[in-house]
Design a protein around this nucleic acid. Structure first.
Lengths: 203, 203
DNA sequence: AATATAAGATAGTGTCACTATCCAAGCAAG
DNA sequence: CTTGCTTGGATAGTGACACTATCTTATATT
C-alpha cells in the first residue's frame, strides 16, 4: 500500500507517519521509484504499537523509541532485555540512593539487583508516597507483595510455550501495556468494595 | 517564613512558587505588609504534594490542580470524591463505547457504574493491549482480578479508623501515589521469579 | 540615605510532538 | 503529450505546557 492508504487505515496523518520514519521509529517503505514506496502490514502493526505506547501509556516518543529498539534488537538474554524495557517506563527516577527500596525488597524476600531500574523506581515511588504524607512501612509493603507475586507468576507461566523472540516482545510490551489495565482494575475493585458495603459510606 | 525560605526548604525556585500561587494551586502567604507575606508548614506540605504528583506521577499541572481541589473541597460523599480523583489519573480516556470494559467487569463480578472514570480507563487499557498485539481474554482478566481485590480490600481496611476528612485525602492521594509502588513491585516480582528459576532464562 | 529583598505582574524560553509548506519527480487522464 | 494531482523527502513553523526571567513598586535593613 502507499503512504496515503497506510494513513487512512491507521488513522494517523501522513505528516505524522513521515515524522515517525524520520525519527527512526518506523522503517521506510520499499521504494518502487523515486516517488513511490510500498508499505505493508508490518508498518500498520508498528504504527498501532506506537499509538498504544504513546496514547495509552503516554510515553514520550524517546521512550517509545527505546522500547521498539528493544523489540527489534533484543539484548543477550530476555532477562537483560526486560530490565532495559523497564527503564523506559515511568516513574523516571535518577535516585542517588536506593535505601528505602532496598529495605523493602529485603523485607519482602525479593531479589535485589542494583542494575535493575525497578529498584530506583520503587525508591522514587516510596519517596513520593511519603512526600504526600502517606505511610510506607512493613505492613503497607506486605499487603502488596503477596498478590503481586501471584500476578507475576500467572503472567510468566504461559510464556514458556512461545518461541524466544515472541517471548521477548511479549515480555517487553506486556510489561508496558498490562499496567494500565492493572491500575484500572484496582480502582474498580475499590469502587466495588465501597459499593457493596451497602451505603456504609466510610472508606 | 518568607518565600525565600520556603523556596530553600522545599527546593523549588521562588519563581516556580509564584507560578503555583498564580495558578491557584498554592494559597498566598498571609500578607504582613505590601511587600511581605508569611508562609507556614501547610505551604511546605502542599508544595511536597504538588511535587509528588507532578514528578513521581508525572501528572500535568491541570490534573494536579483537580486533585488538590478535591482534597480542599471534597464532593458530597467519599465515593463521589474518589470517583472524581480517579478521572484525574491516566490513562486519559474519552472512549465513546465501553463494551470491552463492561464485558470484563461482568465477567469478574465487579460493580459496573458508567459514571466511574475507571471504566473508560479499563476500556482504553484493553484497546491498547490489543493494539499492541497482546491478548485480553477471560483467562487474562481473571489472573488479575483475585489478587487486585485482595489488595483493594487490604487498602480499605485501615481507613475506618480515620476521621472523614482524613479518609478523603488519604483515599484521593493514596489512589494516585501507591500506584507507582504497585507497578515497581510487579516489575521486581517478575525479576525475582526469573532470577530464582536458576538460569532457566526462559520467560 | 543607600542597598537589598520582597511581592506581584508581564513577557519570554525551551522542549516536545507534531503539522504545514516546499520542491522535484513520477503517474494518470484527456 | 501536457496538465494537474500525488508522492517522497526535506525544512521550517506551530501550539501546548511548565516554567523562568525581567520589571516595577514598596519596604526592610544597615
Amino acid at each position: 500500500m502507499r503512504i496515503s492508504e497506510l494513513s487512512e487505515r491507521s488513522g494517523i496523518p501522513v505528516a505524522s507517519i513521515k515524522f515517525y520514519i524520520r525519527e527512526g521509529m518506523l522503517p521506510r517503505g520499499a521504494a518502487t521509484s523515486a516517488t513511490r514506496a510500498e508499505y505493508g502490514d508490518e508498518h500498520l502493526a508498528r504504527l498501532r504499537v506506537i499509538q498504544a505506547l504513546s496514547d495509552v501509556r503516554a510515553l514520550p516518543l524517546a521512550r517509545v523509541k527505546e522500547i521498539l529498539a528493544l523489540i527489534d534488537e533484543p539484548d543477550e538474554t530476555p532477562y537483560a532485555t526486560l530490565g532495559r524495557a523497564v527503564s523506559a517506563l515511568p516513574p523516571y527516577a535518577d535516585e542517588t540512593s536506593t535505601d528505602r527500596a532496598r529495605e523493602t525488597i529485603a523485607l519482602l524476600g525479593l531479589t535485589y539487583d542494583e542494575r535493575f531500574a525497578a529498584v530506583a523506581q520503587l525508591e522514587a515511588a516510596i519517596r513520593g508516597i511519603e512526600a504526600a504524607g502517606l505511610a510506607w512501612d512493613a505492613e503497607t509493603a506486605a499487603r502488596y507483595a503477596g498478590p503481586l507475586l501471584q500476578i507475576a507468576a500467572a503472567e510468566l507461566a504461559p510464556l514458556a510455550e512461545l518461541s524466544e523472540s515472541e517471548q521477548v516482545s511479549y515480555a517487553v510490551l506486556g510489561t508496558a501495556m498490562y499496567e494500565p489495565a492493572i491500575l484500572a482494575l484496582r480502582r474498580l475493585a475499590h469502587q466495588h468494595l465501597l459499593a457493596t458495603r451497602e451505603t456504609d459510606d466510610d472508606m
